[in-house]
Design a protein around this nucleic acid. Structure first.
Lengths: 198, 198
DNA sequence: TATTTTAATGTATTTTAAGATATCAATTTC
DNA sequence: GAAATTGATATCTTAAAATACATTAAAATA
């Protein structure tokens, strides 16, 4: 299996984790059996074009043939959450989705609580950050705090703890993205020397 | 065979013709049998990843997994001479290469002729244009004129005819590229709304 | 016009992905 | 701590790509 083939396989896995879905869910979406997805992601098979395309499409991606010279530019544009630790990314996305869901339910159950509304708002504001910069643990703690909020407020501290954790998360994200962007060059995202040989 | 699979196959063919090589040459370069290349280009098979990669690499291209949203931008960057008539493109490139070769030989055979030097120079200047905008017939006529130039100048008109044809070609290319670029918008090549959902 | 090149197609054989199913260990969840 | 989920494997069958040839029609070339 060539290096590029492995790279494509690795990117498929990353894309799946970035969507926070399991191989079985992707199997349902794409029609490719879970066992086969496992083999493909592990680069233990040489997949057919249609298999790659089925998976790519289920992940809202495309397989494109690009000039080698344009590859760096293409990479920049696709910004494939690259280099990121796949596992942590997957966990982060998963937690993120669970928090969203939890907040949605909380608002259904306790429409009277203004604090919930504010939590919802704060969280929505964090959408603009890239989830992958959040530590899965921070997200998990926040989720667990949110899950302790129940209508007869037997544990009023759950609310304030949620608020604290939400603030921390916000800070954490702000710092991480700041760091992540600090090494971005000023040069344009791509510069193609407009050649077209021949 | 899905639409995207066909698109990839079509692009492989275009890339091959753009390099002006035959299926057999590509076969030698890539290790993929000529018969198989024919079937792949015709989308009559569902190729394996390694087959696509072998062909792509021999054509100095890469197979990249890109977010669907980024596809238009990627297409713009790779500027796949799309919509172009593959056949004409192939012929043009071929003629182009033959003219280059002919001029090289002419300069070896008749280093004294200044006219040849000038022809060589003019032709080199045309490199900056995209070959595919040249009509294969114009190129062919120029080549044929060049082939009539022989050291004991029995046909002196061959030289002046070559010069005329070279001038015409130059004009033709200038006009075509002007036309081809006239609909280019001023907006940046891509605008990615930096989302990363999740 | 004769010759060569090119691309497509046919056939037979080998190799291997795909698919269906089941299982299993390791997490994760409740 | 029991139950569910997840990813990786194993087995078996089927379908199809890959390969090595051979052949042909059309086009390009001499």
């Amino acid at each position: 299996m060539s290096y590029r083939a492995q790279e494509i396989a690795a990117n498929l896995r990353k894309a799946r984790l970035a969507k926070g879905i399991s191989q079985r869910e992707l199997s349902d979406l794409s029609g490719v059996p879970q066992a086969q997805i496992s083999r493909i992601e592990a680069s233990s098979v040489d997949p057919r074009a249609t298999s790659l395309l089925a998976l790519a499409h289920a992940l809202e991606m495309e397989l494109a043939l690009v000039p080698r010279k344009a590859l760096p530019a293409v990479r920049m544009i696709s910004k494939q959450t690259s280099g990121q630790d796949s596992k942590a990314l997957g966990q982060a996305v998963k937690e993120w989705n669970r928090i969203s869901e939890r907040l949605r339910i909380l608002q259904m159950e306790s429409p009277a609580l203004d604090a919930v509304k504010r939590l919802q708002k704060s969280f929505a504001d964090l959408q603009r950050f890239q989830v992958q910069f959040a530590a899965p643990e921070s997200l998990k703690r926040l989720r667990q705090a949110l899950e302790k909020i129940k209508e007869p407020l037997t544990q009023p501290e759950a609310l304030s703890r949620s608020q604290d954790l939400m603030r921390n998360l916000s800070k954490e994200l702000a710092q991480s993205t700041e760091l992540a962007h600090s090494d971005e060059r000023v040069r344009p995202a791509y510069s193609l020397d407009e050649d077209d040989d021949a």
